[in-house]
């Protein structure tokens, strides 16, 4: 992978965010089995990777990440940032045992928060919008966060089902 052209504010922003996010992740009391944590974290990172690959790739160049229009080492680090994002999302959802309309509010708050974080990243030069806008980010996060919660429920159900099958043998 390509190293950054200059080690400046965008790289520092990514490294600082990584430090904060992962410190918070290890500081929070554990709620899930490790396999579920791994699944949720790599799902978030992969969704981000697939999105960037499709929207910021060669054909649809809607935005670029970090210094160059190439796949840099720090692009990879931004995907590592999305991993705790997915974990925190399901952590709150599970901890507060949300039901009914509060789920919608929770998703809205997260979508707004993620869009705001995206805009802060923009100020630090992590993203450079070409034909992309903050309103698109909000819609994107709104859909993706909803899907991530559905995926989490599916993972949890599959996990429990497998456990039950084994206990019933």
């Amino acid at each position: 992978m390509i190293l950054p052209e200059q080690f400046d504010q965008n790289e520092l922003f990514v490294l600082t965010s990584l430090l904060i996010f992962y410190s918070l992740l290890f500081w929070l009391p554990n709620r899930f089995p490790l396999s579920l944590i791994i699944l949720m974290m790599i799902s978030s990172a992969t969704v981000a990777r697939l999105t960037d690959h499709l929207l910021s790739g060669s054909k649809m160049n809607l935005y670029s990440i970090m210094d160059l229009d190439k796949y840099e080492l720090f692009d990879f680090f931004t995907y590592l940032l999305y991993a705790p994002f997915g974990y925190f999302l399901v952590y709150g959802y599970d901890k507060f045992k949300l039901q009914g309309i509060s789920v919608l509010l929770y998703i809205l708050v997260w979508a707004l928060g993620a869009t705001a974080f995206g805009e802060i990243s923009l100020l630090f030069g992590v993203f450079k919008y070409k034909e992309w806008e903050a309103s698109y980010s909000f819609t994107y996060y709104f859909i993706m966060i909803s899907l991530m919660l559905l995926v989490y429920r599916f993972f949890k159900r599959s996990y429990k089902l497998h456990k039950v099958e084994i206990y019933n043998r």
């Binding site: 396999s35 699944l39 790599i42 799902s43 992969t46 995907y79 599959s158 497998h162």
Partner: peptide
Amino acid sequence: LSMLENIFLLIVLEF
């Protein structure tokens, strides 16, 4: 393989 393993493989392979 179990469902969780297949999903895990899919996610890793896509990345």
